[in-house]
Design a binder for these strands. Structure first.
Length: 811
DNA sequence: CAGGTAACCTTTTTT
DNA sequence: AGGTTACCTG
């Protein structure tokens, strides 16, 4: 587990001349800018980090004190990278570098009391705040029929990112969801305050409010951080905007770098206007454009450029490079996701074994974390070392969350979410009912739940037995809390024993599982010890918990490891790899189905692909499938409309492992139903749905042919191959735009359209269920998507929601 | 109240 | 496919 920055060797700083001599004229221009606002529009691979680090070194060389400079990034990894590189230019400097959230977390430690918190406040992670949200919804007494807890949480999160307070929201709420959220918001916020906790959004919100309401503090901090640099400015939201703005009034030496074409966090409140309007916000701004690309081949760059030109809302850029032409970009079509994974893994194996490349040269990007599964399997099966930068990570594991929850509760006895987690873990006879009663007592008295537990004997609704159990828990808690200031390792080992958590784990995990939870706990302890050593001066427990709360998945990335890297497109931003695969470039996946509601989201998806493409230095393959497992079911899928926007004529287009050419010259003579293409399903979905069984058979048959023959075949004929996209054009010859393709129904839609109309299900209808067999409908009720049917099967009655149930009409 | 099993629902991306 | 909840039994 990689939590912390790497060891840094000390070196002599280069002279100013040496510093500047390494730069191109536009880069030098930016580096030598000292006072006043600056906007650096930096295309991908244009040496942005180089400019930022050199500029900081330059500022330091002008005798500007290191503590007056702060560099804000979005990920810890970006900050680490920057620090590492700056240290080579300016050894031993103490410039503040880190994420926005960490910056705010540290300010908030100091000024906690000004927003009603104590300095040992806790940071709720996403799942913590989700738990807290559920409790707030219950306490607020609102009905969740029109908005799920998740949706409510989203609305509130969005509001916070827009600096909308609970009071303001109450007056502004319009849609039913907003009305519900507006009722929950103040309750949630009050519970957070009682718990002495903040969520991620609050870190920014509280600081923004501090700066807004205390002009004294604002000007003090403005003076303190005279030079502020913000990386990835296109991803800032309003709260972040307000914070840097407030810190750049008396000392407007704000320098931001970014690329509107790489803005991919709109869904979490990032506002593209922040960068697009920067020149309006700071009229005296100096703008520098870095357009030369030092990373990619012209082949890669042209593909990226062609794609991004389709976005309407952007600043035109001219990307260019002096690099060698390199290999053409490959577009590859596979039968299904397994084949895609196998092919990629084979290709990597072959490149490694022939010494063409090393594992760390490769990266595989996908839109969703779940897509890494089959890739992981394929790589593992071939013994290829890999690292996954994804969500199923260490800190999400139950045993880790449990131990951390104990630590949280020790650090902050008001941490209600942690208490709810551990009060009955391991089980000690305190059930859901008991907890609920403790919580409502706590709510009624506006005290933390642990405090309520201490006063359990005052709670009338509690059974005597329960009171005893709760008191026992409090006693255990007090015993471990007494060790709060002990070294982390001692504290953690003690708590695991004292709570009998180790025994609990042993008992529950004895069944076969290879990944041992106890080993994970040990790993956590190791990480804590590691932290202790690196941060001897910080108050260890609190600092450790903050560190853990603010690490992200992408921070685990280790570029020095000899491994293939698997990650989402989002996580890939800021990185580069010699050889890149982008998988699942399919409609409804990239662009994602839920991003199609408006143009802004659609363009963001295009930028996402742009980001992925521009990570590649010398070699790039995009791939899509005809079928893919979605939620455990194989479903037909269609190529992404974005593929249509690429310079296909200069790319190599390959279909893998289908023995015959699926795009021969005589293509037009074939009848549409012979075309073996996803698009065919538009014309003839019935054939396609019927052929699922056959497909899996085909898959097996293809494997028998071996990969060599596939490779030969594909390489040979690659140049003459067309693509699924060309086919799409032929199907709709007059219109080749995305918009049009977007309007076409996807094959997947066609399949679900195959479902019988809801009116086909009536009382007495004979139906078949894939599990229960045949049955008769006893009664139907409700309307629309909520329409229910009660069905009598041989083994009993079952209720179904007709819109979703896997029911066929027999008669 | 705990622990197991079965139904059910969910799926984008992350600090 | 995987995680979570609901319900049943001990």
């Amino acid at each position: 587990m990689i939590l912390f920055s790497r060891f840094r060797p000390a070196m002599d700083a280069p002279s100013i001349d040496a510093l500047l001599s390494e730069l191109t004229p536009p880069q030098r221009d930016a580096v030598q800018h000292i006072d006043g606002p600056m906007l650096i529009l930096a295309g991908p691979g244009s040496g942005k980090t180089r400019v930022v680090t050199h500029r900081i070194a330059y500022l330091l060389a002008q005798d500007i004190a290191d503590w007056q400079i702060a560099a804000l990034t979005f990920t810890n990894k970006a900050a680490d990278e920057m620090r590492l590189r700056l240290d080579k230019l300016a050894p031993g400097q103490k410039v503040w570098m880190g994420t926005f959230h960490r910056f705010c977390a540290q300010l908030l430690r100091r000024y906690a009391t000004m927003v009603g918190l104590q300095e040992n406040y806790s940071i709720y992670d996403t799942s913590d705040s989700k738990q807290a949200m559920k409790r707030a919804i219950e306490a607020a007494g609102v009905s969740t029929t029109h908005a799920t807890p998740d949706q409510i949480a989203n609305v509130i999160s969005k509001a916070k990112n827009q600096l909308v307070t609970a009071e303001v929201m109450q007056s502004q709420a319009r849609s039913p969801k907003e009305v519900v959220a507006a009722k929950v918001y103040p309750v949630y916020q009050r519970q957070l305050l009682t718990a002495n906790a903040v969520d991620f959004d609050d870190l920014l919100l509280h600081v923004a409010n501090l700066l807004r309401h205390s002009s004294e503090l604002r000007s003090e901090l403005d003076q303190r951080f005279r030079y502020i640099m913000v990386d990835e400015y296109q991803d800032t939201n309003l709260a972040q905007y307000a914070i840097v703005r407030a810190l750049s009034i008396d000392c407007p030496n704000l320098s931001v770098t970014g690329d509107p074409d790489q803005s991919i966090y709109g869904w979490r409140g990032a506002d593209l206007n922040n960068i697009l309007d920067f020149e309006k916000d700071y009229p005296s701004v100096k703008t520098v454009r870095l357009e030369q690309n030092y990373r990619s081949t012209p082949n890669v760059l042209r593909v990226a450029d062609q794609l991004i030109r389709h976005n309407r809302r952007r600043k035109q850029k001219n990307l260019f490079t002096d690099n060698n032409e390199g290999d053409p970009v490959i577009l590859r079509l596979f039968e299904n996701g397994f084949e895609e994974a196998d092919s990629i893994a084979d290709e990597i194996v072959s490149a490694i074994s022939t010494d063409v490349a090393r594992p760390s040269d490769f990266a595989i990007f996908c839109r969703m974390n779940s897509l890494t599964r089959s890739l992981e399997h394929a790589l593992r099966g071939r013994g290829v070392p890999y690292q996954i930068i994804n969500g199923v990570e260490f800190y999400q594991r139950k045993e880790i969350k449990d131990v951390l929850a104990y630590l949280h509760l020790i650090n902050n006895p008001a941490h209600d979410v942690a208490l709810a987690r551990v009060i009955n873990t391991p089980t000690r006879g305190i059930g859901a009912k008991t907890l609920e009663r403790l919580q409502s007592f706590a709510d009624a008295n506006r005290i933390p739940v642990l405090e309520a537990a201490r006063r359990a004997d005052e709670i009338e609704s509690l059974a005597k037995r329960s009171v005893t159990m709760v008191q026992k828990f409090v006693a255990i808690y007090d015993r471990i809390a007494a060790k709060a200031t002990a070294p982390l390792e001692e504290l953690m080992r003690f708590l695991v024993q004292e709570t009998k958590y180790d025994q609990f784990l042993k008992k529950n995990s004895s069944d076969s599982d290879d990944a041992s939870p106890l080993a994970n706990v040990d790993e956590l302890i190791t990480a804590a010890v590691d932290f202790d050593h690196r941060h001897p001066d910080d108050g260890s427990l609190e600092a450790f918990l903050e560190q853990v709360a603010l690490v992200s998945d992408t921070d685990a990335f280790e570029e020095n490891d000899e491994r293939v890297t698997l990650m989402t497109l989002h996580a890939s931003k800021g990185l580069e790899f010699p050889r890149v695969f982008i998988v699942g470039v399919e409609d409804d996946l990239l662009p994602h189905k839920r991003s199609k509601e408006d143009d802004a989201q659609f363009e963001e998806e295009r930028r996402l692909l742009f980001v992925g493409i521009t990570r590649a230095k010398e070699w790039l393959q995009l791939s899509c499938c005809k079928r893919r497992m979605i939620r455990g079911e194989p479903r037909p899928v269609v190529a992404s409309p974005f593929l249509n926007e690429l310079p296909l004529e200069e790319m190599v287009r390959v279909e893998s492992s289908v023995p015959r050419n699926w795009l021969d010259d005589d293509i037009d003579q074939r009848r549409p139903d012979e075309w073996d293409l996803p698009e065919i399903q538009i014309n003839d979905h019935a054939t396609n749905t019927d052929s699922f069984g056959d497909d899996s058979f085909d898959f097996g048959a293809n494997q028998d042919e071996g990969f060599d023959s596939i490779d030969e075949q594909t390489k040979e004929s690659a140049a003459t191959f067309g693509s699924a996209i060309d086919m799409a054009k032929r199907v709709t010859p007059d219109k080749e735009t995305i918009a049009n393709i977007g309007v076409l129904k996807t094959a997947a839609d066609m399949v679900s359209d195959n479902r019988p109309p809801l009116t086909a299900f009536r009382e007495g209808t004979l139906v078949r269920h894939y599990d229960y067999g045949e049955g008769t409908i006893l009664a139907v009720s409700g309307r629309g998507p909520k329409r229910m049917a009660r069905v009598q099967f041989a083994d009993g009655e079952h209720n179904f929601r007709l819109a979703f149930a896997k029911l066929e009409v027999v008669r």
